[in-house]
Design a protein around this nucleic acid. Structure first.
Length: 281
DNA sequence: AACGTGAGCAACCGCACTATT
DNA sequence: CAATAGTGCGGTTGCTCACGT
């Protein structure tokens, strides 16, 4: 556990060439550049090469905090450029949102938080940011990591318990035999309402042998766990949008909280004096 | 003490959506 | 209205450290 009080000030922006990260998405690269596409791609790649990556130094954190206070939590590319951090705007934003933002809590989840995550995940699925809004001080990344870790453990336990039986098939038995057509509950809802499928992913856990490997995606495991949770007492109902929900007093509390969910803005409590970043790790 | 392993977590990537020009 | 820039989000990767052997 460490506690860092960041004194904003005294950090001078260097004027080293920075270059905001160009849009790296297909949208821009492929739509906007016409014949110079390849050149632009190369230039962009070169710029990206120059960008600093990897873990942030304390000095960088200080600098970022200072410039965020100056310019606000917007225009990350611009902020990255003028701050002289030689980081991409994206990277700066991520660092701020996941680590430097005042009011963030680090360290172990409390049992209450764990319970809430379980319930909200049952309700919304992998909508981490949405879930995070119900856990003040927790980030989507943190919750996502927590969930992954928990699921990994569960998966292992499950593998142990099923290894004695010849077939990994399960009680819920909703694992499609067709790799191309996952069961509907594995389809992820996109924001536009269309469905996509959480594809394979490196998380897929191999069960059984190579011949006839039972590729077990995390989604499938989650689904099974949800099913077993249902058995163990959580009442789950199917939402019309495909998400599962749990009737929960905790959720009622959550929706009544100032931490708004859905598309509404929410505000983090901001400390009045300086920035306090604490961590248990 | 040295090594291997796995959990935890920070950071990155790529896509999609939204805002701006 | 289309093109572009900016932002948000979910998924993934890889590093670090604690722990067991």
């Amino acid at each position: 556990m460490f506690l860092v009080a960041i004194n904003v000030g005294g950090v001078v922006a260097s004027d080293q060439p920075s270059g905001a990260e160009g849009k790296t998405t297909r949208t821009t690269i492929e739509r906007g550049l016409g014949e110079d596409k390849e050149e632009a791609k190369l230039a962009m790649a070169a710029k990206k090469e120059e960008m600093r990556r990897g873990p942030w130094m304390e000095q960088e954190d200080l600098q970022l905090v200072r410039f965020v206070r100056l310019f606000g939590e917007r225009r990350w590319d611009y902020l990255a450029e003028v701050s002289g951090l030689n980081r991409s705007g994206k990277s700066c934003r991520l660092r701020w949102v996941n680590y430097l933002h005042p009011g963030l809590r680090h360290g172990r989840m409390t049992p209450e938080e764990e319970h809430l995550v379980l319930e909200l995940h049952a309700k919304w699925g992998n909508r981490w940011s949405r879930i995070a809004r119900c856990l003040p001080g927790r980030t989507d990344n943190e919750i996502k990591n927590y969930w992954r870790t928990r699921m990994r453990k569960k998966a292992q336990e499950r593998r142990m318990s099923t290894s004695s039986s010849p077939s990994p098939s399960t009680s819920s038995s909703n694992i499609s035999s067709s790799a191309n057509e996952p069961p509907p509950e594995l389809a992820m809802k996109k924001r536009d309402g269309t469905e996509s499928v959480a594809v394979g992913s490196s998380l897929a856990l191999g069960f059984g042998t190579n011949e006839g490997v039972m590729a077990y995606s995390m989604d499938q495991i989650w689904d099974e766990i949800a099913a077993s949770d249902r058995v163990s007492g959580l009442s789950t109902e199917e939402h019309k949008d495909g998400a599962r929900s749990v009737a929960s007093p905790v959720w009622e509390h959550c929706s009544a909280s100032p931490w708004r969910v859905d598309d509404e803005e929410f505000e983090m409590p901001t400390p009045t004096d300086g920035l306090i970043v604490s961590s248990n790790s």
